[in-house]
Amino acid sequence: MAWTRARDGLPLYYECFEPASRPRAAVLLLMGLGANARIWAPVVAPLRAAGHTVVAMDNRGCGRSGVPWRPWSTRTMAADAVAVLDALGVRRTHVIGASMGGMVAQELALAFPERVHSLVLGCTSGGLPRGPALVTRRGVREVLALAVRTVRPVPLDVQVERFLCANISGDFAATAPRDGECWRAVEAMLAEPTCLRGLLHQSLATVRHSSWSRVGGLRPRVLVQHGTADPVIPVAAGRELARRIPSADFQQLDGAGHALGLERTEEITQRALAFMRAEESGSRV
């Protein structure tokens, strides 16, 4: 557990997990709107077991990182990620970004391609301005309403249940045990709720993000992962994102919702690990 400073002096919180076996390249994890790094717990474990140093950071505006008064952009958050890498002395890393974190990951790879070994983009998009066919307004409204509710004094178990119902498929939500890893990860995240100002500024950065016209210039290899039952960002957005990135791989997860790291942990991590190993060895999956 540690802090560093962004370019504007804002404190940035991050956690670094050393590998449980022979060290491989580092993996940077970037989370979505209003969510802090604690929700990555189910994904951290298999990445560490595979030998990767795992870095999970709290984006500005949430968790233990600072909350500026002025708005910011996904490019600012990409620069924040570089500040964390610099603090750790990591020159090059694999990057896994989910939802808004996937947008930040795109900006990171576009602005600092020399720092990114490969890119895994989950349940994300090239931006909301592309239209309702690729990002549903209803889905965005539901996520924002859910996030706003987390700043209200509601019992934690109720908050966890609401989060799961809004972000994973109905079948998985109905069977997720309250003492299971998925429930505990969401509970740990919600124990440190995002303040309303941070949530609004992160929302503004997400709404303003648009990389559709630039993702064709991505230099690192990219794996796009998306669930067919995602209620927030439809699978069509993931397919379009992969189509616009030269030689990108696309993994469709049938029946999966928005929070792939909670619902399909093993499936997405094993595919990501195979993809990253292939990139490290210079071969393709």
Rank of each mutant, 00 (worst) to 15 (best):
A2T: 14
T4R: 07
R5G: 13
D8Y: 02
L10I: 02
Y13H: 12
E15Q: 14
A20Y: 12
S21K: 11
P23Q: 00
R24I: 02
A25N: 06
M31P: 01
L33D: 04
G34N: 06
I39C: 06
A41P: 08
A41H: 13
V43K: 05
V54G: 06
V55N: 06
D58G: 08
D58L: 05
N59K: 03
G61L: 02
C62Q: 13
P71K: 10
P71D: 09
M77L: 15
A79E: 13
V82S: 08
V84W: 09
L85I: 10
V90C: 07
R92W: 00
R92Y: 00
A98S: 15
S99K: 10
G102M: 04
V104L: 08
E107T: 04
L108N: 02
A109L: 07
F112V: 02
E114A: 12
R115Y: 11
V116M: 09
S118Q: 09
S125W: 02
G126Y: 03
G127L: 09
G127V: 00
G131F: 12
R138Y: 12
V140F: 14
R141A: 15
R141I: 07
E142K: 15
V143E: 05
A147L: 10
A147Q: 10
A147D: 02
R149V: 00
R149D: 08
R149M: 12
P153H: 12
V158N: 09
V158E: 15
R162A: 14
C165V: 05
N167K: 01
I168K: 05
G170L: 08
D171P: 01
F172R: 08
A173D: 00
A174S: 14
A176F: 10
A176P: 00
P177Q: 07
R184L: 14
E187N: 13
E192Q: 12
E192A: 09
E192K: 03
T194P: 05
L196A: 11
L196N: 01
L199Q: 02
S203G: 14
V207N: 10
R208E: 15
H209F: 04
S211D: 14
S213D: 14
R214G: 08
R214N: 07
R214K: 13
R214V: 01
P220A: 13
R221V: 04
L223Y: 12
V224E: 04
V224D: 00
G227N: 07
D230M: 01
D230L: 07
P231H: 04
V232F: 07
A237K: 04
A237D: 11
L241E: 03
L241C: 06
L241Q: 05
S247H: 15
A248S: 07
A248W: 09
Q251E: 13
D254N: 11
G255P: 01
G257P: 03
H258L: 03
L260D: 11
R264S: 06
E267T: 14
T269I: 13
R271D: 08
A272Q: 04
A272E: 03
L273C: 03
F275A: 00
A278N: 08
E280C: 08
S281I: 07
